[in-house]
Design a protein around this nucleic acid. Structure first.
Lengths: 320, 320
DNA sequence: CTGTTAGCGCGTTCAT
DNA sequence: ATGAACGCGCTAACAG
C-alpha cells in the first residue's frame, strides 16, 4: 500500500527522483537509483495506474463493441484486435451489445468519460445522429463503409462481395439463386439485399423475395433453412450464405435429408473459416484477423481520419 | 473539457454541491440543483471517471483471462460474465492468453496496479506459487477445483463428469472406450485422464493409452481423429469427447467416411451446445452461462472466500 | 442544507 | 542532477 511519497522518504530523495527511476528517465545518479530500487523492493511498492491515468488523461484501454462473443465472425475480428493490442501495450474492454442500442451507448459513454481512449464499433446499431454527438470525445472506428462521414473505418464492401458470389453462381448455370443473411437492417444487411435486387434487375429477371432468408447466424440455424427449402414448391438451386457457420449447417442438414450438394443445392459461404475448409465448402474469404489488427492500429494512431476497404477472395471448393 | 470546478463557478455553488448533484445525493435545494444542471448542460460537462477511480480506489473493471475467444466453451462463460456485469454496472477487460503464461501475468499485473478490481481466470496457466504472490492485491476467481487454497472458485468436477460418461458408455455395452481431450496438462486435463485411468483400473482391465486423443478443440479437429481411428488395428467402439464441437466434427466426418454412428462408433460430447442439439449428439450438459454469472458475482462480492461445484447432466440423444 | 479543505497518487515544470 | 510545488478532477470528512 505504499505510494510514491513513502518511497521518496524511505530512499531519502524527492518524489520527482522516484518518478524518474520508475519511468526509466535519465538524470539520476546511480546511487540514488539504487536507493530508490531498494525502497521499492522492501516496501513492495506498486504504482497506482489510476493516478497515472488521471495525470496523463489516457488509459491505454480500447473499447470494442460487438453484437455477440460466441460467433466466429466477431471472435476472429476480436482476436485480431487483441493481438495487436498486446503488441501496442493496450488493453481491451469488451461490450457485447446483442444489437441493443443501449449497450452501444454504454460503450460510447465510457469514451465520453475518458475511461477508454478509443472505441471500435464492429456492427453499429445507433443512428448516425447519435454517434455524431460522441465524435468529439475520442476516436471511434467502424467496420462499415462510412462514406463521406468524418470518421475512420476498416470495412469490406458487402455489395461487391455479394455481387461477386451471385455472378459466380450464375456463371455456373444457376438461375434460381437464394441468399441467407443475418439482419436485413443495418448497413451490411441493406448492402447485401441491394446487391441481390440489383443483380436480378440487371438481368431483367424477376426478383424473388421469398428467396431471401434472414436472421440466420449459426450452424444450428441451417436446419431451419433446409426445412423451409423442403417445403417450397420451387426452391432455389443455389444459396449464397453470409457466413460459413450457417453454410455448414445447411450442408450438414441437407445431407441428412438426402439433398445432394452441389447437385440439388449449391452453397457458397463467407469468411473461409476452418469449418468451411474441413467441409469443403466454397466460400468467400474475408481476412478477419487482419481486419481486427488494422482496426486497433487505426484506433490508437493519431493520424487523420481514413477509410480502408478490405479485399475478399473467392475460394472454390466442392459445394458449387 | 469543463471540470467540476468550472461548473461550481458557473452555477455559483461549491464543488461539493456539484458533486452531490452529479451523484444524486440528497441535501441539496431544488434551486441549486437546477442551477447546477443548467451549468452542466451549457458547458457540456462530463465527469472524468479516472478521477473518480483514483479518489475511490476502485475502477468497476473486472479482468477476465481466457485461452481463446473463438471457442464456444469460453464464449458462453464470457457471455454469462458479461450479462451479470451489465446488471452490476461493471465492465469487462478481456485477456486472451493462448495458454501463454506471460499473458496471464499481464492480467495479474493489472490487478496489482489496481486497474481492475478483480480477476477471473477461466483456465489457469501460472503455477500456484506465482498466483500466490498476487493474492493480496484483489480477488482472483478460478474455474477449477482449488481444493484447500485460500481462493474462490466456481467449477465443475471433470473427474466426476468423465467417470459419469465412461460408466454410461460401459452400461451400454461398450468395452473399447476412448477419450478426446484438449490439453493433457492443467488441472482439468489431469482430472480427465485420471478418471479414465481409474475407471479401467477399477474394472481390472488394461489401460489403453493409445485410446487417449489429446490437443483437440474445434469442429475441424474431428477430421484428424476420424482418420486416426480408421488407421487403427483395433479402434475404440466409443468416444467420450471433452466438447461438443469436436464431437460434432467427429460425427460429421464419420458419416462422410461411411462410419455409422452409433453402430460403428458411439460418441458423447460435453457442454450441450446448440450444435449438439441439432446434430442429435448425446452430451453432458454444463451450464456455462450460469457459471459465468456466478463467477462475476463472486468477483464483486465482498464476502469470504468460497468454492462452489456446478452439477452436470447427461443428455441422452442419438449418438450412443 | 452548504461550503472549506484535505486527500487520492503520480507527472512535470521550473528554478537551483 | 535534484527537488519544491502545482496540477489532474473528484470524493468525503467536517464545520457551520
Amino acid at each position: 500500500m505504499a505510494n510514491i511519497r513513502d518511497i521518496a522518504k524511505m530512499a531519502g530523495v524527492s518524489i520527482t527522483t522516484v518518478s524518474r527511476v520508475i519511468n526509466n528517465q535519465p538524470y539520476v545518479s546511480l546511487e540514488k537509483i539504487e536507493a530508490v530500487k531498494r525502497a521499492i523492493e522492501t516496501s513492495k511498492y506498486e504504482k497506482n495506474i489510476n493516478a497515472v491515468h488521471l495525470s496523463k488523461g489516457k488509459t491505454f484501454l480500447i473499447g470494442v463493441a460487438i453484437p455477440f462473443f460466441n460467433h466466429p465472425f466477431f471472435a476472429l475480428i476480436v482476436e485480431g484486435i487483441a493481438n495487436e493490442a498486446l503488441n501496442s501495450n493496450y488493453k481491451m474492454v469488451l461490450f457485447q451489445t446483442n444489437y441493443e442500442e443501449n449497450r452501444e451507448i454504454e460503450a460510447l459513454d465510457m469514451l465520453k468519460q475518458k475511461q477508454i481512449d478509443a472505441l471500435i464499433i464492429c456492427s453499429r446499431i445507433c443512428k448516425w445522429n447519435v454517434i455524431d454527438t460522441y465524435l468529439d470525445y475520442g476516436p471511434i472506428i467502424f467496420c462499415e463503409n462510412t462514406g463521406d462521414r468524418k470518421v475512420s473505418s476498416i470495412y469490406m464492401d458487402h455489395y461487391k462481395s455479394f455481387s461477386k458470389g451471385l455472378e459466380y453462381l450464375y456463371s455456373k448455370g444457376h438461375r434460381k439463386i437464394g441468399i441467407c443473411v443475418g439482419r436485413k437492417v443495418g448497413t451490411n444487411g441493406v448492402q447485401r439485399i441491394s446487391a441481390y435486387r440489383d443483380f436480378f434487375k440487371k438481368l431483367n429477371e424477376p426478383f424473388e423475395s421469398e428467396y431471401i432468408f434472414s436472421d440466420y447466424y449459426d450452424f444450428e440455424d441451417g436446419q431451419e433453412i433446409v426445412e423451409k427449402l423442403i417445403n417450397m414448391n420451387n426452391p432455389p438451386s443455389a444459396l449464397l450464405v453470409s457466413n460459413d457457420q450457417v453454410a455448414a449447417g445447411i450442408v450438414t442438414c441437407s445431407k441428412e435429408k438426402g439433398i445432394s450438394i452441389p447437385d440439388d443445392l449449391a452453397v457458397i459461404g463467407f469468411d473461409n473459416q476452418p469449418i468451411a475448409k474441413i467441409m469443403n465448402i466454397t466460400t468467400i474469404e474475408i481476412p478477419l484477423v487482419e481486419m481486427g489488427r488494422k482496426l486497433l492500429l487505426r484506433a490508437i494512431s493519431n493520424e487523420a481520419l481514413s477509410c480502408e476497404e478490405i479485399a475478399v477472395k473467392l475460394v472454390e471448393r466442392l459445394t458449387v
